[in-house]
Design a protein around this nucleic acid. Sequence first.
DNA 1: ACAATATTCCAATATTCTTTATAATATTTG
DNA 2: CAAATATTATAAAGAATATTGGAATATTGT
Lengths: 233, 233
Amino acid sequence: MSDLLHIPGPRGAAPSVEIRDALFEGFAKVAQALAHPTRLHLLGLLDYAEHPVEKLVEQTGAQFASVSAHLKVLREAGLVRSRREGRRIVYSIAHAEVPSLIHSLRQLSAIALPEIRLLVETHYRDHEVIEGVDAAEKLLAQIQRSRCLVIDLRPHEEFQRAHLPRARSFPLQELGDRLHEIPRDKPVVAYCRGPFCLAALRGVRLLLGAGYQARRLAMSVGDWARAGLPLKT
Amino acid sequence: MSDLLHIPGPRGAAPSVEIRDALFEGFAKVAQALAHPTRLHLLGLLDYAEHPVEKLVEQTGAQFASVSAHLKVLREAGLVRSRREGRRIVYSIAHAEVPSLIHSLRQLSAIALPEIRLLVETHYRDHEVIEGVDAAEKLLAQIQRSRCLVIDLRPHEEFQRAHLPRARSFPLQELGDRLHEIPRDKPVVAYCRGPFCLAALRGVRLLLGAGYQARRLAMSVGDWARAGLPLKT
DNA sequence: ACAATATTCCAATATTCTTTATAATATTTG
DNA sequence: CAAATATTATAAAGAATATTGGAATATTGT
């Protein structure tokens, strides 16, 4: 086995141990960029939409200089890119693979870390949840047969960019005042920004409290698309 | 951290900021566990097979106490588990999602980080590569029609645990001495432990040097299985 | 050109992580 | 029960990261 790691490279190239170590260092650099709660928060926000630094500061509640430093780390790891727009600098996700990696990270964390597992069990399991590709495919069939009503709880802009087929936009803030627009004859499925989205929790609780038969789709629109299911844009 | 466990449930005032922060801290803890070259090396080794600490020390070349400390970090992040076996303590991957996350991390790194991209371009592109699910499916069809010969370059034990359909075992160390067993009438596809495996590079170069029409499958057996393709066990 | 704005850069401090040597623990062997 | 073995735990030094306030930079608007 150790032979494999000490093979000479082709005609005077770097020895393979050095290549291997350089690879691991690179992978670690990317992992390191993910290894801070604020940076994960930033990536989460940027997954919804691109944002100028100011917005990110406001959303995360961290110091301006601190957010700027974190963004630098993310930029140097190639996870985000920035462009100037007037006096603003607008950040966005650099590659489609980034949200996908973060999704894997979150999913694994919910399995591997007892503290997260407990958190999910206590806060996300007081209602019926639709999760996994199989369940999503079944849901799609139900949607197409008009057997249920799909409610998108995200802000209007995100809804407009892409949403589930036949979904109707009820941003969480408006939901309480617009319940009369939601018919009571069909079961309701609400979704928001993904399996850990807290807005989705509140929306489902609100609907359940108002007597609806409500479930939560524990997938983001991105997850839905990655599962190969259709979106409306 | 114990604060996290005392958040009032949905009945009380829901301090969703605290839940959110607790989630991000958990995710960051898992990411942090990945954020060191030695730990990524350890996870890579454990993905091939479970190992006692001694073996891991030997393979990584790090100090014993250092490896032990890294293993502790991985254990506390829920990524590996350990069991005692006599006087040895044997480590293994704790969840099937772990190799999958690492695969995503590596893949993204190869896209996002210029230094890795360069490394891959200079060291892994002197021969034809088969990568991606589509190409793998085509390869499977070719294998099933006996249009090519598949060579597994990993150690015997790993071959025996699982390998591609019709693959033949030629551990890299033996390959040079056993070339006469490989017919020259068909193109050869060699694979080893994944897209960054250095042994696979050596094997393909050796075959090319011996006049074979050789390509490299840039997937691990695990990747192959995750793509939904069949394995022989 | 000057003031206002948005962001990055810098330097100092505090914090966390890594390594190393050494001590402690648990298991097997004699 | 003592010695040998494999591993973990501890403590101290050194390295890397994170935070903060303030200075520097680049752009826009007057």
